[in-house]
Design a binder for these strands. Structure first.
Lengths: 350, 350
DNA sequence: GTGAAAGCGCTAACAT
DNA sequence: ATGTTAGCGCTTTCAC
């Protein structure tokens, strides 16, 4: 009987391939997984049979026995605004920073045949979903990019003994692996540059102060300025968005009209600040020098292009992924952290 | 013997729950899946047992029998630049447009307990990976956002009879479902608005002309302008990036210094155009009116804020997801298309 | 309404 | 070097 290539047929299984090749299932399994030695001749026969049948191993069946899903969860967690369930996702996915994280994660994972499942944990229900997704074995571990300090997810992950790695040091101490940047060093780079070009009235637009990264950038900046002989640095707090950067810059200008240098804790806020500066007819960098943080796409889209502190987000994301796969392979592994170094990228705004 | 709650233990299975509850596996399965009638009393006992054991159903085992993965692939396909494997991912993930797609997809999928696996198909190997991921049953179908015209993936998906839905009409006809926007209507909105405010020398910055959406926006714009009595519309082609928008605006200004209105085929290019206009000291909207397309985040971040044609990307992404789940549930379903309507959002740039 | 039992497709001992 | 076989944890007839 001729087998039609048109479908309603069930897909071929190992059994089918074995029959066609005239060997046992085990042998076929071996050539597919490259485990053990299999005779050259036989390997060829099996491969031919695989091509002929169009066989593709069933993942569920494989996972069932190997206890590996071959996927990990890429979780963005934060506080969803009650009422508008999707606002959080919308905001985070439109942030170029997250795009870089995703890109770095994918770039590394694709070399290991692992795939990321995108999840948003902005409500208690969503957090439960993440946890159960992992407990079900749907993913072998979680990569967590947390956007707010009180996030309970890291602790829950640890408690459930699920492999997980964070993008940044958690706000409250939790025995969990993470990658991070030396934010203080980055802020120092900005301070040195601003002072180096002669600024004497320098202010800063800080990120949300409940986030450790914001804290560190602020502390690092203040310390460095103090060492340069400037004990007082005016600050305005923003929320890492362009709009909040605008508002912060307005406040700064109103209270300290003589400002000649600004360090914004990320590029998005710097972008906002730039527009306000322009509106007030302050020439950048001639009258006010501006340094951003991150070196994300807005830094290049701005005019003048932003001088900024580069955060190697893609590398960090790749490192985070590698760390996670280590934890997946070796469940006992102790928490580990990897800190990356920032670099100053001098462009036109300072 | 006391069972320690500390782990190296294997996770509880249906069997364990059944034993604790004093019923059969089948019954536990029934209360979990809400299938069939199960006695009230027994339901309670079972639920208690589930809580007590901390049971979570194993997805691989379930998938093996239901033949459903409970995940779908969200694939971004395009041409990767040879040499820099990750550049494509970096570019697409930093595009706010993609963020909106992801957000819309997630928003819908979370209501159905389905999770998206993020994939990039920028090389032949990556395309094969997508195909085999689906054939393996790792995902039940694919959502495809294609960024270039010659993408072979849609046809391959159809050929393999894998459930798939595209974000936009494919460049060459393929019997596949998709959602799309009425781009021509959107372009007409822009033309009408520009003419309505008195512009008489209007040009357009088009998207890459091998992409159907770009073609449609251009055609729609020209047609509408022609109907308003303007048979000739200067055009400059861009690549949907801010930088390409700048370059296009420069060319337009050089060749047609008298321009008083511009329609950019997306907001990113409009943003670039705005900076060039500003550099050339052309007041927007007083001297040159500018209309963008998409209504994505740059539209609000610009100064002046962009008047633009809104594309309901999140709704479209949700619609695409719904369509896919339909196809997954009913394999025989014929290809279907859903076209969304654009709307003009008037802000400050025109 | 509930239980018993037969697989789903695969890998990994264990035999040979 | 290859084959045999016993499950992995679940859903789903089929009896009762």
């Amino acid at each position: 009987m001729r087998r039609m290539s048109r479908s309603p047929t069930t897909p071929p299984t190992l059994e089918d391939v074995a029959r066609v090749a005239g060997v046992s299932r085990a042998t076929v399994s071996r050539v597919i997984n490259g485990t053990r030695n299999v005779d050259r001749k036989i390997q060829e026969v099996v491969r031919a049979a695989i091509d002929q049948t169009g066989y593709a191993p069933n993942r569920a069946a494989r996972s069932l026995v190997t206890k590996r899903a071959g996927t990990i969860a890429l979780v963005v967690s934060g506080a969803g605004e009650p009422g508008d369930e999707d606002a959080f996702a919308a905001r985070v996915f439109s942030d170029p920073f997250f795009g870089r994280v995703a890109s770095g994660v994918l770039g590394f994972l694709r070399t290991r045949g692992v795939h990321p499942v995108l999840m948003v944990a902005d409500t208690e229900a969503a957090r439960e979903d993440v946890l159960s997704f992992l407990r079900q074995g749907s993913a072998d571990g979680a990569l967590l990019v947390s956007t707010h300090a009180e996030d309970p997810l890291p602790a829950r992950l640890v408690e459930a003994e699920l492999p997980a790695v964070l993008f940044a040091r958690p706000a409250r101490p939790v025995p969990i692996s993470y990658v991070d940047l030396d934010h203080q060093a980055g802020a120092k780079l900005a301070a040195d540059h601003l002072v180096g070009r002669g600024c004497t009235q320098v202010a800063t637009i800080a990120g949300p102060l409940d986030v450790p990264a914001s804290q560190d950038r602020l502390t690092g900046f203040r310390d460095a300025m103090a060492r340069h002989g400037f004990p007082y640095v005016p600050i305005a707090e923003g929320g890492f968005t362009s709009g909040s950067g605008e508002a912060a810059m307005e406040r700064l200008l109103a209270e300290h009209p003589g400002i000649d240098g600004v360090f914004a804790a990320n590029d998005l806020m710097a972008q906002g600040a730039l527009m306000v500066l322009h509106k007030h007819r302050r020439l950048v960098p001639e009258e006010v020098a501006l340094v951003g943080f991150d070196d994300s796409s807005p830094a290049l889209a701005c005019r003048p292009r932003l001088t900024t502190v580069r955060q190697p987000v893609e590398d960090m994301a790749a490192g985070m992924s590698r760390l996670l796969l280590d934890h997946v392979e070796e469940p006992g592994l102790r928490p580990r952290s990897v800190i990356f170094e920032p670099a100053l990228v001098v462009r036109d705004s300072a």
